[in-house]
């Protein structure tokens, strides 16, 4: 059961720690479907291959991605802005 938290106005956190492939990608897509255009999703992962696959899945949907940023041993944060060409994100 992945948890989606509301961190602030328009910013959500999806915690998929403990999950391995392909669940982080599936949960990220589901969470992105829940939030609105222009809102931001921070995905917290601890599955190393997801460092590549989660950003790739978000980019394939045309969203801008920042990270993965290392936030601890074997722990990363990937920031996705829903909607194309969001300011401040590559």
């Amino acid at each position: 059961m992945a948890k989606l938290y509301k961190k602030g106005e328009g910013v959500y956190v999806l915690d998929v720690t403990g999950y391995t492939c392909p669940y982080p990608v599936i949960f990220t897509k589901k969470a992105l479907a829940r939030i609105r255009e222009g809102e931001v999703l921070e995905v917290i992962i601890d599955n190393p291959p997801s460092c590549e696959t989660v950003p790739r899945a978000a980019r394939e949907s045309g969203y801008s991605v920042e990270g993965p940023v290392s936030i601890g041993p074997g722990l990363w944060r990937i920031t996705i802005k829903k909607g194309a060409g969001g300011g401040g994100y590559k």
């Binding site: 059961m1 992945a2 989606l4 509301k6 956190v13 720690t17 589901k30 829940r34 936030i71 601890g72």
Partner: peptide
């Protein structure tokens, strides 16, 4: 698992997102 994602509206409680970059490297 239809409700795979549970939305919790309050502030994220501790855990992964709070203990930020101090232990990064």
């Amino acid at each position: 698992m239809a409700s795979v994602i549970e939305v919790e509206l309050e502030e994220a409680p501790g855990g992964a997102m709070v203990k930020a970059s101090s232990t990064a490297r």
